[in-house]
Design a protein around this nucleic acid. Structure first.
Lengths: 199, 199
DNA sequence: GACAACTCTGCACGCTCTGCAATAATTCAG
DNA sequence: CTGAATTATTGCAGAGCGTGCAGAGTTGTC
């Protein structure tokens, strides 16, 4: 069996309830006016419990706990794959990340919609991807080996996050239909055009 | 004359006092243990006054009020200069930004040292550079004209910030001597190598 | 010196987030 | 099924950040 006990299922359900309640309230009243207390009233649970699930209010908006990279994709990247070309492999890694949101695509997309009007959230997302960032840093170091100086790691990490963000924006300006990651290739093309216009 | 009245001078002095006190206390006790109250006690001023100067505690660490781009450099960038090559011009713009920190280079460097151990600060810097970010967005839109879709703007903005960050990191790993912006060219070279390895 | 404009300050308040210890619910072993 | 171990929920007390307001003190202008 799936071995998902009652406990785990309840936990996940509550997590999603928090996220959904937050999104619903934010849609109604604007995010600024939504307090943790209100969210908890909506879910029917104590404020203290909220903070057993999230480190901050923003985390509930973003619906992030542990947004893990796909194991296989990460491993492939660290060992020099899948293509051997760094940019192409960054693209592959980003695609896999956008394709496996921890709480489903609808929630991810709603979170992004909210983040649009609240820059600080986008930044919080970056921070939260900071756990990811460390993970990415480790991957990059493994991949580059001796050639990995810290600034290259910082640059690649930022680039990955930037690609993801720009892809969201492009998906959004395209009307928000279809899969987010489908817009990544054109973002990469833009990047290439900027950095190496004459190739 | 410079037309800096007593008022303006006092204000600037107090601003710097806040920043310096924050840095000093953070060096002594670690940033987490520094409260706004302590900073104000150090400066000899009321807590309420602190928030007349800064929007948040983090801002005092970063010493940022309005980190403006150099007018001339920004204008040149927006109108397609100085070289006409986008990447080179991004480099020029970044250099000018790193070369004109609002409160002096020592404070900027100390702020970066603190930010190293506190990722959320680096992000807050990005946010605060959000004023900058919007400004950058406007510049990019002016520069690209019709070709400026939002995702390209997002991408370039992120890239500019990423370049600045990576440059700091490189400056730091190089021992922190010399001017920060001197390390930008090698960061740009790295970026080029990643995106267009075969050029 | 008088009036306007700006700044500082204390106070009250709301909100986020943490630590702690008691209580309740789930799981597991026998 | 039952008791013990594990894990979740909760209230409470409290630190800290940040804001609005109104009065008192400074600075600038004429």
């Amino acid at each position: 069996m799936e071995a998902e006990g009652l406990r785990a299922r309840k936990k996940r359900a509550r997590l999603e309830a928090f996220v959904d309640a937050t999104h619903r309230l934010a849609a109604e009243q604007g995010l600024d006016r939504v307090t943790v207390e209100a969210i908890c009233a909506e879910v029917g649970v104590s404020v203290r419990t909220f903070f057993n699930y999230f480190e901050s209010k923003d985390d509930a908006v973003l619906g992030m706990e542990h947004w893990r990279l796909d194991q296989a994709a990460a491993e492939a990247f660290a060992t020099g794959g899948p293509t051997g070309d760094l940019l192409a492999d960054m693209q592959a890694l980003t695609t896999s990340a956008l394709d496996h949101p921890p709480l489903g695509k609808e929630r991810m997309e709603r979170a992004f919609e909210l983040a649009k009007g609240h820059p600080e959230l986008m930044l919080r997302a970056y921070t939260h991807v900071q756990g990811l960032h460390d993970e990415i840093g480790a991957l990059v170091r493994r991949r580059l080996g001796d050639a990995a100086d810290e600034s290259a790691v910082a640059l690649i990490g930022t680039l990955l996050l930037g690609l993801a963000h720009a892809t969201f924006v492009r998906w959004d300006t395209a009307g928000g239909s279809g899969d987010v990651q489908d817009h990544l290739p054109s973002v990469v093309a833009d990047l290439t055009a900027i950095v190496a216009p004459r190739t």
